[in-house]
Design a binder for these strands. Structure first.
Lengths: 117, 117
DNA sequence: CGAACCGTACGATGAGAGTCGAACTTTCCG
DNA sequence: CGGAAAGTTCGACTCTCATCGTACGGTTCG
Protein backbone atom coordinates (compact mmCIF):
# COMPACT_ATOMS: atom_id res chain seq x y z
CA UNK A 1 0.00 0.00 0.00
CA UNK A 2 2.36 2.61 -1.25
CA UNK A 3 -0.11 4.63 -3.23
CA UNK A 4 -3.41 6.10 -2.14
CA UNK A 5 -6.26 5.91 -4.58
CA UNK A 6 -8.02 9.04 -5.71
CA UNK A 7 -10.68 9.73 -8.32
CA UNK A 8 -9.78 11.10 -11.71
CA UNK A 9 -10.66 14.75 -11.91
CA UNK A 10 -12.96 13.97 -14.81
CA UNK A 11 -15.21 11.81 -12.70
CA UNK A 12 -15.62 14.34 -9.94
CA UNK A 13 -19.13 15.78 -9.73
CA UNK A 14 -20.11 19.18 -8.42
CA UNK A 15 -22.68 17.60 -6.13
CA UNK A 16 -20.07 15.63 -4.23
CA UNK A 17 -17.73 18.59 -4.07
CA UNK A 18 -20.42 20.82 -2.63
CA UNK A 19 -21.36 18.22 -0.04
CA UNK A 20 -17.73 17.87 0.93
CA UNK A 21 -17.32 21.60 1.27
CA UNK A 22 -20.50 22.04 3.29
CA UNK A 23 -18.82 20.96 6.52
CA UNK A 24 -16.99 23.65 8.52
CA UNK A 25 -14.14 21.35 9.50
CA UNK A 26 -13.51 20.26 5.94
CA UNK A 27 -13.76 23.84 4.78
CA UNK A 28 -11.10 24.83 7.31
CA UNK A 29 -9.06 21.87 6.14
CA UNK A 30 -9.18 22.96 2.52
CA UNK A 31 -8.36 26.53 3.43
CA UNK A 32 -5.42 25.49 5.57
CA UNK A 33 -4.18 23.23 2.80
CA UNK A 34 -4.52 26.05 0.35
CA UNK A 35 -2.60 28.38 2.64
CA UNK A 36 0.13 25.81 3.07
CA UNK A 37 0.47 25.30 -0.64
CA UNK A 38 2.73 22.30 -0.30
CA UNK A 39 2.53 18.77 0.97
CA UNK A 40 1.55 18.88 4.60
CA UNK A 41 1.43 16.29 7.32
CA UNK A 42 -2.17 15.46 8.12
CA UNK A 43 -1.82 16.06 11.83
CA UNK A 44 -0.24 19.44 11.24
CA UNK A 45 -2.83 20.85 8.87
CA UNK A 46 -5.12 22.15 11.57
CA UNK A 47 -2.30 23.22 13.88
CA UNK A 48 -2.69 26.86 12.98
CA UNK A 49 -6.46 26.88 13.19
CA UNK A 50 -8.90 26.87 16.08
CA UNK A 51 -10.27 23.51 15.08
CA UNK A 52 -9.59 20.67 17.51
CA UNK A 53 -10.77 17.17 16.66
CA UNK A 54 -9.69 13.60 17.28
CA UNK A 55 -7.39 11.91 14.83
CA UNK A 56 -10.02 9.41 13.74
CA UNK A 57 -12.34 12.28 12.88
CA UNK A 58 -9.57 13.97 10.96
CA UNK A 59 -8.88 10.79 9.09
CA UNK A 60 -12.56 10.59 8.20
CA UNK A 61 -12.68 14.13 6.84
CA UNK A 62 -9.52 13.66 4.84
CA UNK A 63 -11.04 10.57 3.29
CA UNK A 64 -14.19 12.51 2.36
CA UNK A 65 -12.15 15.27 0.76
CA UNK A 66 -10.01 12.75 -1.07
CA UNK A 67 -13.05 10.86 -2.36
CA UNK A 68 -14.47 14.17 -3.50
CA UNK A 69 -11.33 14.70 -5.56
CA UNK A 70 -10.24 17.81 -3.71
CA UNK A 71 -7.07 16.60 -2.04
CA UNK A 72 -4.33 14.08 -2.65
CA UNK A 73 -2.57 11.82 -0.18
CA UNK A 74 0.96 10.54 -0.41
CA UNK A 75 2.74 8.08 1.80
CA UNK A 76 5.96 9.34 3.35
CA UNK A 77 7.41 6.77 5.67
CA UNK A 78 5.54 6.81 8.91
CA UNK A 79 3.19 9.62 7.95
CA UNK A 80 0.75 10.65 5.24
CA UNK A 81 1.21 13.91 3.43
CA UNK A 82 -1.79 15.67 1.93
CA UNK A 83 -2.06 18.46 -0.58
CA UNK A 84 -4.74 20.35 -2.43
CA UNK A 85 -5.36 19.38 -6.06
CA UNK A 86 -5.54 23.06 -6.89
CA UNK A 87 -4.82 23.04 -10.60
CA UNK A 88 -7.04 20.11 -11.39
CA UNK A 89 -9.95 21.38 -9.36
CA UNK A 90 -9.61 24.84 -10.84
CA UNK A 91 -9.50 23.33 -14.27
CA UNK A 92 -12.74 21.44 -13.73
CA UNK A 93 -14.48 23.98 -11.49
CA UNK A 94 -13.03 27.36 -12.42
CA UNK A 95 -13.24 29.90 -9.65
CA UNK A 96 -14.23 27.48 -6.91
CA UNK A 97 -11.01 27.39 -4.93
CA UNK A 98 -10.34 31.00 -5.77
CA UNK A 99 -13.54 32.08 -4.12
CA UNK A 100 -12.73 29.96 -1.07
CA UNK A 101 -9.40 31.71 -0.86
CA UNK A 102 -10.85 35.18 -1.15
CA UNK A 103 -13.82 34.64 1.10
CA UNK A 104 -11.93 33.62 4.19
CA UNK A 105 -13.42 32.17 7.38
CA UNK A 106 -14.24 35.54 8.93
CA UNK A 107 -12.42 37.89 6.67
CA UNK A 108 -14.47 40.01 4.34
CA UNK A 109 -11.67 42.36 3.38
CA UNK A 110 -11.85 41.78 -0.32
CA UNK A 111 -10.45 45.04 -1.60
CA UNK A 112 -7.56 45.15 0.86
CA UNK A 113 -4.34 45.28 -1.13
CA UNK A 114 -1.49 43.05 -0.16
CA UNK A 115 0.91 46.00 -0.41
CA UNK A 116 3.63 43.47 -1.06
CA UNK A 117 3.58 44.51 -4.68
CA UNK B 1 -46.67 41.55 4.22
CA UNK B 2 -46.15 42.64 0.69
CA UNK B 3 -42.42 42.29 0.53
CA UNK B 4 -40.26 39.34 1.37
CA UNK B 5 -37.02 40.02 3.18
CA UNK B 6 -33.73 38.87 1.77
CA UNK B 7 -30.12 39.41 2.79
CA UNK B 8 -27.95 41.98 1.06
CA UNK B 9 -25.53 40.26 -1.27
CA UNK B 10 -22.66 41.80 0.67
CA UNK B 11 -23.55 39.95 3.82
CA UNK B 12 -23.76 36.55 2.16
CA UNK B 13 -20.99 34.18 3.17
CA UNK B 14 -19.57 31.34 1.15
CA UNK B 15 -20.09 28.95 4.05
CA UNK B 16 -23.84 29.46 4.05
CA UNK B 17 -24.03 29.25 0.30
CA UNK B 18 -22.16 25.96 0.23
CA UNK B 19 -24.37 24.52 2.95
CA UNK B 20 -27.45 25.60 1.03
CA UNK B 21 -26.17 24.02 -2.14
CA UNK B 22 -25.19 20.77 -0.46
CA UNK B 23 -28.75 19.43 -0.54
CA UNK B 24 -29.87 17.62 -3.74
CA UNK B 25 -33.35 19.11 -3.62
CA UNK B 26 -32.07 22.65 -3.29
CA UNK B 27 -29.52 22.01 -5.99
CA UNK B 28 -32.29 20.87 -8.33
CA UNK B 29 -34.26 23.92 -7.29
CA UNK B 30 -31.45 26.29 -8.20
CA UNK B 31 -30.84 24.52 -11.48
CA UNK B 32 -34.50 24.63 -12.42
CA UNK B 33 -34.65 28.29 -11.49
CA UNK B 34 -31.60 28.94 -13.58
CA UNK B 35 -33.11 27.10 -16.51
CA UNK B 36 -36.33 29.06 -16.17
CA UNK B 37 -34.51 32.35 -16.09
CA UNK B 38 -37.57 34.31 -15.11
CA UNK B 39 -39.89 34.63 -12.17
CA UNK B 40 -41.44 31.26 -11.55
CA UNK B 41 -44.25 30.07 -9.34
CA UNK B 42 -42.86 28.10 -6.44
CA UNK B 43 -45.05 25.08 -7.02
CA UNK B 44 -44.10 24.95 -10.67
CA UNK B 45 -40.36 25.06 -10.26
CA UNK B 46 -39.94 21.33 -9.77
CA UNK B 47 -42.62 20.39 -12.27
CA UNK B 48 -40.11 19.47 -14.92
CA UNK B 49 -37.83 17.55 -12.61
CA UNK B 50 -38.04 14.13 -10.99
CA UNK B 51 -38.17 15.63 -7.53
CA UNK B 52 -41.41 15.14 -5.65
CA UNK B 53 -41.82 16.68 -2.21
CA UNK B 54 -44.57 18.11 -0.07
CA UNK B 55 -45.33 21.79 -0.22
CA UNK B 56 -44.19 22.38 3.33
CA UNK B 57 -40.83 20.86 2.48
CA UNK B 58 -40.62 23.01 -0.62
CA UNK B 59 -41.41 26.06 1.43
CA UNK B 60 -38.63 25.14 3.81
CA UNK B 61 -36.03 24.75 1.06
CA UNK B 62 -37.04 27.99 -0.57
CA UNK B 63 -36.56 29.73 2.73
CA UNK B 64 -33.10 28.24 3.12
CA UNK B 65 -32.11 29.36 -0.36
CA UNK B 66 -33.54 32.80 0.24
CA UNK B 67 -31.72 33.16 3.56
CA UNK B 68 -28.55 32.08 1.81
CA UNK B 69 -29.01 34.95 -0.62
CA UNK B 70 -29.37 32.78 -3.68
CA UNK B 71 -32.98 33.43 -4.64
CA UNK B 72 -35.54 36.19 -4.36
CA UNK B 73 -39.24 35.92 -3.59
CA UNK B 74 -41.97 38.26 -4.79
CA UNK B 75 -45.62 38.27 -3.88
CA UNK B 76 -48.01 38.03 -6.79
CA UNK B 77 -51.56 37.82 -5.58
CA UNK B 78 -52.29 34.38 -4.33
CA UNK B 79 -48.88 32.96 -5.15
CA UNK B 80 -45.19 33.61 -4.56
CA UNK B 81 -42.85 33.98 -7.46
CA UNK B 82 -39.20 33.08 -7.06
CA UNK B 83 -36.16 33.84 -9.15
CA UNK B 84 -32.44 33.32 -9.03
CA UNK B 85 -30.29 36.29 -8.01
CA UNK B 86 -27.93 35.40 -10.80
CA UNK B 87 -26.13 38.67 -11.36
CA UNK B 88 -25.62 39.43 -7.71
CA UNK B 89 -24.41 35.94 -6.86
CA UNK B 90 -22.09 35.90 -9.84
CA UNK B 91 -20.77 39.27 -8.82
CA UNK B 92 -19.95 38.06 -5.33
CA UNK B 93 -19.00 34.48 -6.18
CA UNK B 94 -17.78 34.53 -9.78
CA UNK B 95 -18.14 31.23 -11.55
CA UNK B 96 -20.33 29.57 -8.95
CA UNK B 97 -23.63 29.55 -10.80
CA UNK B 98 -21.85 29.09 -14.08
CA UNK B 99 -20.33 25.85 -12.90
CA UNK B 100 -23.68 24.67 -11.63
CA UNK B 101 -25.13 25.37 -15.05
CA UNK B 102 -22.40 23.53 -16.90
CA UNK B 103 -22.16 20.58 -14.56
CA UNK B 104 -25.71 19.35 -14.81
CA UNK B 105 -27.44 16.83 -12.52
CA UNK B 106 -26.18 13.73 -14.30
CA UNK B 107 -24.61 15.16 -17.38
CA UNK B 108 -20.86 15.07 -17.59
CA UNK B 109 -20.72 15.77 -21.28
CA UNK B 110 -18.98 19.09 -21.13
CA UNK B 111 -17.56 19.34 -24.61
CA UNK B 112 -20.23 17.23 -26.26
CA UNK B 113 -22.00 19.11 -29.05
CA UNK B 114 -25.76 19.02 -29.39
CA UNK B 115 -25.43 16.78 -32.44
CA UNK B 116 -28.85 18.06 -33.49
CA UNK B 117 -29.79 14.75 -35.04
C1' DC C 1 13.44 -7.27 18.81
C1' DG C 2 10.56 -4.01 21.04
C1' DA C 3 8.73 0.53 21.80
C1' DA C 4 6.79 4.61 19.99
C1' DC C 5 4.36 7.01 16.38
C1' DC C 6 1.01 7.85 12.44
C1' DG C 7 -2.92 6.75 10.29
C1' DT C 8 -6.97 3.67 9.39
C1' DA C 9 -11.01 0.74 10.49
C1' DC C 10 -14.81 -0.30 13.29
C1' DG C 11 -18.71 0.27 16.12
C1' DA C 12 -21.50 3.41 19.18
C1' DT C 13 -23.44 7.73 20.35
C1' DG C 14 -25.73 12.26 19.78
C1' DA C 15 -27.05 16.31 17.37
C1' DG C 16 -28.80 18.26 13.42
C1' DA C 17 -31.38 18.40 9.10
C1' DG C 18 -34.90 16.83 5.88
C1' DT C 19 -39.51 15.19 5.54
C1' DC C 20 -44.31 15.01 6.25
C1' DG C 21 -49.14 16.08 7.75
C1' DA C 22 -52.31 19.22 9.65
C1' DA C 23 -53.90 23.71 10.81
C1' DC C 24 -53.97 28.53 9.72
C1' DT C 25 -53.64 32.91 6.87
C1' DT C 26 -54.21 35.31 2.80
C1' DT C 27 -55.96 36.06 -1.69
C1' DC C 28 -58.80 35.37 -5.75
C1' DC C 29 -63.12 34.26 -8.01
C1' DG C 30 -67.93 32.83 -8.62
C1' DC D 1 -70.29 35.90 1.13
C1' DG D 2 -68.31 31.37 0.72
C1' DG D 3 -65.30 28.10 -1.38
C1' DA D 4 -60.91 27.09 -3.44
C1' DA D 5 -56.04 27.55 -4.01
C1' DA D 6 -51.11 28.83 -2.54
C1' DG D 7 -47.79 29.21 1.20
C1' DT D 8 -46.31 29.42 5.81
C1' DT D 9 -45.82 27.63 10.39
C1' DC D 10 -45.74 24.14 13.78
C1' DG D 11 -44.87 19.71 15.80
C1' DA D 12 -43.15 15.18 15.39
C1' DC D 13 -40.59 11.61 13.21
C1' DT D 14 -36.63 9.56 10.85
C1' DC D 15 -32.25 9.17 9.33
C1' DT D 16 -28.01 10.72 7.94
C1' DC D 17 -23.63 12.39 9.50
C1' DA D 18 -20.05 14.22 12.56
C1' DT D 19 -17.66 12.82 16.57
C1' DC D 20 -15.26 9.89 19.71
C1' DG D 21 -12.75 5.83 21.82
C1' DT D 22 -10.62 1.73 20.99
C1' DA D 23 -8.16 -1.62 18.46
C1' DC D 24 -5.23 -2.78 14.59
C1' DG D 25 -1.57 -2.47 10.80
C1' DG D 26 2.60 -0.46 9.16
C1' DT D 27 6.99 2.11 9.82
C1' DT D 28 10.94 4.01 11.99
C1' DC D 29 14.46 4.01 15.40
C1' DG D 30 16.94 2.69 19.70
Amino acid sequence: MTEVIEPAIETVTIDVVLSALADPVRLALVRALDAAGDWTCGSDVLKGTSVTIGKSTLSHHIKVLRDAGLIRTRVDGIRRLVTLRYDEVEQRFPGLLTMLREHGPARAAAAAPASTA
